[in-house]
Every structure is written in C-alpha cells, then in structure tokens.
Write a protein that binds this DNA or RNA. Structure first.
Lengths: 211, 211
DNA sequence: GCTTGCCTACACAGATCTGTGTAGTTAGCT
DNA sequence: AGCTAACTACACAGATCTGTGTAGGCAAGC
C-alpha cells in the first residue's frame, strides 16, 4: 500500500472517507436538517429523506447505521462554532436577540432544534439530550465571558438570565408567530444589563474604525 | 318522551351525555394527559392509551372520533382557569416562577404541554396551535392586569417580557434538568419589576390577616 | 481489460399505527 | 323478564415505519 492517502483503511460500509463520500454525507445531512427541523424528527421517515435527496434508502443506511445515528449527526451539525465578532461584548449579547428575530422573520426558525429534539424524543438518556445540554451550556458560558469582559456585576447569574430570555423569545416567537417577541426579549435583556451597571450606549470597549 | 333529563338525545356514539359517560370521558382524558405529556403525542398510540385505561380501543373511539380529537381535548383540558389569589399582584407574578420551579422539582413538569404540542405537530393550522396561542395570550394578559394593578410603568411591554422569561425558564429547566433556572428567571423578573418602579418588598396593595 | 467499491432498484420482514366492523356480553331500567 | 345501551374481544384493512438482503450497473484505478 503506497503512502496511505485519503483512501486509507476503507471500511466498506458507514461513512466512507473518500472525498465523494464526504460530499454525499453532507448532502444527506443538509436534507435531513431541512426535513427534521421543519417537520419534526418523528414526522419524517428515512424513506422520505432518501427520496428527497434522490438516493436509495440503502445508500443512506450505508452512511448512517440507523435513524438514531442520523438524528445525532443532525444535531451535531447544528452545533456550529460561535462566530467571533468585532463588536463590543454588550452589543454582541444584544445582537443575539436581533439575530433570532431576523431568522424567524426570514422563516428560517421553527424553535430551537435542540429543544425540539429533547421534546420529541422524550428520553433524557438519548444522546440528543446530552447535545442539547452542551449547546445551552456553551451559550451560557459565552454570555458569561462577554459579561465579564463588559465588567458586569454578577456575570454568572446574569448569564443564566440572558439565556432564559433568549430561549423564551424563541418559544414565544414560535407559538405566537410573532418575530416581535425577540425585540421584547432584547429590551428585557437591555434592562437587566443596565441593572448590572453595564454601560450600553457609549460602548466602552468598542473599537470604531476612523470616525 | 317524558321530561328529557340528562339522557336527552342520545347520540349513541361520541361523548355520551350520561353521568357514567362523563366519568369515562374523564378517565380517558386523565390517562391520555399522563401519557401524551410524559412521552409525547406522537410517541403514544391510541392502543396504548386504551390498554393503559383497561378499555377496548372501540370504546375510546366511541368517545373521540380520532386521535386528533383526543389531542385537542387533551390540550383543552390543560387550559384550566387561573386560580385567584389573595396575594399582592407582584407576589402573584413572582409566585408563577416559583410554581413552575416546584412543579419541575416534583417531577410534574416536562416542558409546556402547549409548546410541546406545537413542536411535535409542526402544523400551524392545527387546532393545537390555536389553543397554544390562546394560552400564551391569556397568561400575558394576566401579567398585564397584575402589572396595571401594581401601577407598573409600561405594563403592556413588561407583561411580554415576563411571559418570555417564564417560558424560557420552563425550556431551560427541561434541557438543563435543573429546577434552579426557575429561581434565575424569578430574579430576572424581580429586576425588571424594580426597573418599572414597582415596589417589591413592602407589598403596597397586600392585605394581611391580623398581624 | 478487469477488479473493486459505490451506487440503484426492489423486494421484503416485521413492527406499529389509525380507524372500522362485528358479534357477543353485561348491567340497568321498565 | 325483556329491552336497550354501553362495553369487550377480536379481526382486519391499509398505511407507514425501520432496517436488511440481493442482484446488477457504472466508473475509477490497476
């Protein structure tokens, strides 16, 4: 075997390591995401997923050994890194509410995929529950670090409050079908930040490009 | 037909109007609630419901023409009146967060049944979505009326913020499996109330029984 | 040109689901 | 005693679901 390239130890089944295999895997996950997220995990069968992509069910099962594995991969793919930003910590926090509001207004939001999965699967031992927890915790820590950077009092507690507000906004947007709830949550977040002695308007740590 | 009593026009099928019929209907709904709420609507079949009660599937279908009708009845039964309270408006508001916290701690809460139904059914045209919306709106108005009674500034907006906080707390308790998120939300609510010039401790409109 | 690996098409097993049809049993009422 | 209404048991239709087994096609690399 001359210089193991990407072919390496070909398993034959499950997640081929070839370039084409990676592309196929991504195609599957992209479609899975759309269907699972819009219609719900339990409402979408693997036949439907395969048919939507235009591949045979057999191929799908060659990439994912079970629907459960597909569900886990779907959620893991949703667990994307938080994009870094040049804006001030406080702005970044408030931007989070704007972002979900914009996503919902653009019809790209139907609740939180992690929360939806936990609700639908109703099994605390499922990997989906672990992933969902990790996602929520990461966001809380992100909030906390931003608050520390903004010199907020009680950053740890406040981060939890902001996280609750964000999830509440997502739920309320879904049920009320009203993107405005994101703005409502943003105002509440703004009030909480002010109460924690965080300057909002003047943006203390913000870098501005040549005024 | 002598003096139509409760027998009245017996339909023969669907929701008998007899006393025994009402009892059976309630038995069905009580069991349905437990199963649907704990395990999820889509995860529980009508066979399971009937078997759990110990009745035949045929009898169940004599009371509810379809599973969908059962789902709607389940949610309608969850739409119970808000109990009145002697406590001050502000206390009533903050009590709401304590209540969901206690319910979760007592393992009696697995998310909001209305939100869960909306998520699971994923159909905005479903009656479940209308019921869920009505429920959320009723609670928002309840908050608003309490805030008006407490002479809060911007009662309308603040009511929305408090509603977002409450739903956020329920979601976070579910995903994090931590009843403490209710207390976190309560603190946030308290901060928001203070910011709206609402007196918290002294309880202005509260009636106390002989100190 | 031939092997190898991925793909498709298709059939199928076995479970589960909603909803119905039917015959027989039980319990209350007159 | 007899009638009626509700309930049970059970079978079944038809759809859908997860997951597998198999035979063959097609394209890339040796």
């Amino acid at each position: 075997m001359p210089a193991g390239q990407e072919k390496s130890t070909q398993v034959g089944v499950i997640s081929p390591r070839t370039v084409a295999g990676e592309a196929m895997r991504e195609r599957i996950l992209e479609t899975t995401d759309r269907l699972f997220y819009r219609q719900g995990i339990r409402a979408v069968g693997v036949d439907t997923v395969a048919a939507e992509i235009g591949i045979s069910k057999r191929t799908l099962y060659n990439y994912f050994p079970s629907k459960d594995a597909l569900v886990v991969a779907y959620l893991e793919r949703r667990f994307t890194p938080i994009p870094t930003s040049e804006r001030s910590p406080v702005e970044q926090i408030l931007d989070a509410y704007d972002r979900v509001g914009r996503l919902f207004a653009a019809d790209a939001l139907r609740g939180c995929p992690f929360v939806n999965a936990v609700t639908e699967l109703a099994d605390p031992a499922h990997d989906a529950a672990k992933i969902a927890l990790a996602f929520k915790e990461r966001r809380r820590l992100w909030f906390r670090d931003l608050l520390v950077a903004a010199k907020a009092k009680g950053a740890d507690n406040l981060a939890g409050q902001l996280a609750v507000l964000l999830d509440g906004a997502i739920v309320q947007m879904l049920v009320r079908n009203d993107a405005g709830m994101a703005e409502v949550a943003r105002q509440a977040a703004s009030t909480l930040l002010k109460a924690a002695s965080v300057k909002l308007a003047s943006a203390p740590t913000r870098r501005r490009a040549k005024p």
